[in-house]
Design a protein around this nucleic acid. Sequence first.
DNA 1: TAGGGATATCGGAAAAAGTCGATATATATT
DNA 2: AATATATATCGACTTTTTCCGATATCCCTA
Lengths: 101, 101
Amino acid sequence: MNSKQLEIFKALSNKTRLEILQWLKDPEASFPAQVHAGFEVGVCVGEIQRKAGLTQSTVSEYLSILQRAGLVESTRVGQWTYYKRNEVAFEELSKIIQSDI
Amino acid sequence: MNSKQLEIFKALSNKTRLEILQWLKDPEASFPAQVHAGFEVGVCVGEIQRKAGLTQSTVSEYLSILQRAGLVESTRVGQWTYYKRNEVAFEELSKIIQSDI
DNA sequence: TAGGGATATCGGAAAAAGTCGATATATATT
DNA sequence: AATATATATCGACTTTTTCCGATATCCCTA
């Protein structure tokens, strides 16, 4: 049994994490403009945290769950960590559901 | 809003439930021949339970979780309940991942 | 209509996930 | 070097999920 798939579905089994993924689909529409970097690199943890309305530690943890599942990737720029979607992972997941699951 | 999606991902967040879905993809290959009905109607709870190696109550519960998520459907025939995959749900899920998530 | 087999439901113990506040670490600025 | 800011990690507590045994329900046949 494929434990990677299981990890992906667990990562998707949370309302806030699903919301974060949707926000990251269109950062311009979902977040205020970023001063220190464009949205190409992603959105910084602080902005995601403000929008989610949960504590910093919880959102940081959620982002690393999404990252371990391969659904997002992060880039450190200075003191900020920017997270963005890994679209390839979603395409693969879509195919997995059509063939594997 | 996306609570149906959440329910689906929760249903998929369990090793045994994922296995059951895969067994149901090819019942002929996964289960012994059924005496009281062909595999078109699905596979009865008892066979799934034996293969899963968990208790009857747990497997019954798992099947109803999958059913509430819309991933399987059941047919009662006499004293048996047969479960089969709802392939439409998987096609829809695949599309949801391409567009919604 | 009684008994037996298949499935569903209930109640609970243990494990996992959710969530927080406190603290550690990394980086930037002065 | 000291301080400030952003993020990550830790420890604890609460909620949810997992999985079981016991029991109820449904349906068949004698």
